[in-house]
Design a protein around this nucleic acid. Structure first.
Lengths: 128, 128
DNA sequence: CAGAATCCTCCCGGATACTG
DNA sequence: CAGTATCCGGGAGGATTCTG
């Protein structure tokens, strides 16, 4: 509580640069967008089968994450402009998700992460 | 506690694929290695000025993270094979960090994440 | 069918103090 | 100088229940 009143700035000559304990590293910002535990999985799923209905995602993720968590992750991806949500005013209701144009630019980045992981894990397993 | 005895498997026909609530998505695994709040910053710092002494890192990160947190993050990076730690048996003690060969392969991946973030944030700020 | 609302748990990172 | 040791709070994500 005592530290809620802005951090002690003694000795800090350039507070802007430090951004007050916040880390404005670009990569850290990327993690805020796609670092959610299931987000890349969802982006891939929606990319591979587009548009994707909520019910399909739910079925595929069943017994892995709950519906509540699924909804939360999707909402955040939508808020950050990665996916588009379209609700049809029908009965029963239907909701479809697609990757936005911005979201599509993520795919190559995700692929490069996957490629790095493959090489990394292979290397790690070999050297022991 | 009740859920410690392996999760209810009813209705799961293919437990291996689900990996028991674990997410074996490659990208998620990458996040476990470099997803720590300050790790990419540290990797960049060590890469740009190699070898890097602990004291230098501490000074650069002063008023941003504590020494304890710095040590923890470095230890994890070392454990995961990204950086190499070399301690000299001198007095006063000296410790140097370098990127491992494996760690160097991270640099292009980090650059691609940075590039994506630049484009992303520009796009987001324009469209509102 | 799709989601909102609550409550709860776990763990990462932070503050502080002590050490060879 | 470069660490450990210990305690602690906050936030992400999960379980459960209720709704149009």
């Amino acid at each position: 509580m005592k530290n809620n009143t802005i951090i002690d700035n003694e000795g800090i000559e350039n507070p802007e640069k430090l951004n007050l304990k916040e880390n404005n590293c670009a990569v850290t910002n990327v993690f805020k967008v796609i670092g959610g535990k299931w987000k890349v999985l969802l982006v891939n799923a929606i990319y591979n089968d587009c548009p994707k209905r909520f019910g399909e995602l739910k079925r595929e993720m069943e017994n892995v994450i709950t519906q509540a968590t699924l909804t939360t992750q999707l909402r955040e991806l939508e808020r950050d402009g990665i996916i588009c949500r379209k609700a049809y005013a029908e009965s029963p209701p239907r909701v479809e998700y697609k990757l936005s144009e911005l979201g599509k630019t993520l795919i190559p980045v995700i692929r490069s992460l996957e490629t790095w992981w493959d090489a990394y894990s292979k290397c790690v397993s070999e050297q022991k």
